[in-house]
Write a protein that binds this DNA or RNA. Structure first.
Length: 592
RNA sequence: GGGGUGGUAGUUCAACUGGUUAGAGCACCGGCCUGUCACGCCGGAAGUUGCGAGUUCGAUCCUCGUCCAUCCCGCCA
């Protein structure tokens, strides 16, 4: 164990140019082929694979050591670069023209049989791979993800630094605030009974930095939200956090566009358009049923209210008279949609999106047929076909319900149908901005207005009167950037006036005392020369996920958690000693 | 909080309608093999069918509970 063979090359670089050279390599045994008197190893490091060969007749010292070695042993070797016989050249390998004929070898660490095949990530379930994450990180997929993540961060830092942004670290232990997601709490030992929270985002700090005069700030920073998780959501995740002073919404949108273009150009060599399309929140909801539309394909939601009044379909008439909505979506290959398949779609919409049903009509021979077509007379059906440009062998699905349900159910159906019909060009990138978000939304459970973005978001100054008269209609200066149906990031122009901020708190039902307790420090800061400012934050993990072509955020985080927020590798969270609890003045309640 | 799917050898999977000794590939162990690259050939070992109850003459299979994973709804300013 005392000897180390220092590598002269990595496992990905030797070629015929290096013939006859005496070289040394370090790496892991990735494959082993034992032919008796001749043994081949594929030696792997993060740069590549080089085949090394042990010949009993030429060097029986290293041969005898190699005889005992197997998968994932770590070794160092020295030897001569030799050309492979013509018939043994491997074109699939960058180093496939050569071998290293080994004459010295050191075994640094023998491996137990690995719990799964590092060469084949699918040789084990995800659960199993997460338990041995440090081994999964040896796979070429995860090595690639980590490298790409690193390169992306470099490009981001370079891009922003060149524009005079500076990266400033903000606290990880901060004040718990009532708004937004559930906080992860950290008990204070020194102040028994008090808690810090881990930041859901450095929102308040970056606004304070604007007051401090750092007019262009950014930070690549961990954020924490104690909610339930999904394929694209983890309890801790990384944001590219940005804030600027003396700017308007369009300045941030331009910056966000350019940053996104830079990343895509540098990392995957894709030229995104100079300006991304902009949709208002309202347009997005009406056309796509979501505020993060995938616009790689069209298939927009169609207005259908206007045909209901002249029909004899009372169910939908009743929905309209109780302020509901009726919208439709048009889908090709009607003949593929049997009763059984439509029933399955209906059940799915009922289960997940609270739809009460899924109506439909098929177009054949220029007439609408089947489903609810009997409630529409012939001239009305012709009008529908003409208005909505329905072609033969298309089916329209129709949902009538409250507006929320119609939009979310049809939005989900749109994605489902696109998938079924293969309408999405997977090689395409479709970025866009969604703007003019509502300032607040009505919270039915608590009977109050909640901020849609966060309470520091400025109302659109044109809508200031609405804030008093009809808050639900007031637009904010909030915006999201969306790529291929994923929310990549979002931000807003902030309130920098303590009077306006007080007014918004008032609207949100946060009284003066509470506002002062929770956000007094920010309100105070705004009394001392707060510049107009705004910013945004990108979800770094989601960006990397898209760039690597993965649908799982876990694939781009070195040590991710499961959907129940556990780490299978180190088995956290875990219980702690009674003594630790005592120090913190905590007592665990029995769960009933 | 709710719903779907899954949990069988180290691992990936199979096992009909509930029925004899729960099988196969890879890995592992032993043997043979000098141009392999999914090396090949011969032989071997390997199981608390996630856990706990129940139904049954009999449960991997049916029922209930529970744990874990995953996907989705709610949630995620």
């Amino acid at each position: 164990m005392d000897k180390i063979i220092k590598r002269t090359h990595t496992c990905g670089e030797l070629s015929l140019d290096d013939l006859e050279k005496n070289v040394s390599l370090n790496g892991w045994i990735s494959k082993r082929r034992d032919l008796g008197g001749l043994i081949f190893f594929d030696l792997r490091d993060r740069y590549g694979i080089t085949q090394i060969v042990f010949d009993e007749k030429k060097n029986d010292y290293s041969f005898n050591i190699a005889k005992k070695l197997s998968f994932e042993d770590v070794i160092g070797i020295s030897g001569i670069v030799i050309a492979r016989p013509k018939e043994a050249i491997n074109d699939t390998l960058a180093t496939g023209q050569i071998d290293i004929e080994v004459n010295d070898i050191v075994v640094y660490n023998e491996s137990e049989p690995p719990p799964f095949d590092i060469n084949n990530r699918n040789s084990a379930s995800e659960e199993h791979r997460l338990k041995y994450r440090y081994l999964e990180l040896r796979t070429k997929e995860l090595q690639h993800s980590m490298l790409l993540r690193h390169q992306s961060c470099l490009e981001i830092r370079k891009f922003l630094s060149n524009l005079d942004f500076i990266e400033i670290e903000t606290p990880i232990l901060m004040k718990s605030t009532p708004e937004g997601a559930r906080d992860f709490l950290v008990p204070s030992r020194i102040h028994s009974g008090k808690f810090y929270a881990l930041p859901q985002s450095p929102q308040t700090y970056k606004q304070l930095l604007m007051v401090s005069g750092f007019d262009k700030y950014f930070q690549i920073v961990k954020c924490f939200r104690d909610e339930d998780f999904r394929a694209d959501r983890q309890p801790e995740f990384t944001q590219i956090d940005i804030e600027m002073s003396f700017v308007e919404q369009d300045d941030i949108i331009e910056l966000g566009t350019n940053l996104t273009r830079k990343i895509w150009k540098q990392i995957v060599n894709v030229e995104l358009p100079e300006a991304f399309p902009k949709l208002t929140y309202k347009e997005s909801m009406e056309k796509y049923g979501t505020d993060k539309p995938d616009i790689r394909f069209d298939m927009q939601l169609l207005e259908f209210d206007q045909y209901i009044f002249d029909s004899s379909f009372d169910t939908f008439k009743n929905i309209l008279s109780s302020k509901g909505r009726v919208k439709a979506i048009k889908c090709p290959n009607a003949s593929m949609y049997s009763r059984k398949i439509i029933d399955e779609l209906t059940d799915w919409l009922k289960t997940y999106y609270n739809a009460k049903g899924l109506a439909w009509m098929k177009c054949s021979d220029n007439i609408l047929d089947g489903g609810i077509s009997k409630f529409f007379d012939n001239s009305l059906k012709s009008k529908i076909i003409n208005d909505l440009s329905i072609s033969n062998d298309e089916i329209i699905f129709i949902i009538g319900d409250s507006q929320d349900i119609v939009l979310s159910a049809l939005g989900a159906l749109r994605l489902k149908l696109a998938d079924r019909e293969n309408l999405i060009d997977k090689t395409q990138w479709a970025p866009l901005w969604v703007v003019d978000f509502p300032l607040v939304e009505w919270n039915k459970d608590h009977k109050r207005w909640d901020a849609l973005h966060h309470p520091f978001t400025s109302p659109n100054l044109e809508d200031l009167e609405l804030v008093d008269s009809n808050p639900g209609l007031a637009r904010s200066l909030g915006y999201d950037i969306v790529m291929n149906g994923y929310e990549l990031g979002g931000g807003s122009i902030r309130i920098h006036d303590s009077k306006l901020q007080a007014k918004i708190f008032n609207l949100l039902g946060v009284d003066d005392q509470e506002a002062n307790e929770k956000f007094g420090f920010l309100m105070n800061a705004f009394k001392y020369g707060a510049p107009p400012h705004g910013g945004m934050a990108f979800g770094l993990d989601r960006i990397i996920m898209l760039l690597t072509g993965s649908a799982q955020i876990r694939d781009v985080i070195a040590f991710p958690k499961t959907t129940s927020a556990m780490s299978l590798m180190d088995d956290s969270p875990s219980f702690v000693d009674q003594e630790q609890l005592n120090e913190l003045g905590l007592k665990i309640k029995e769960k009933k």
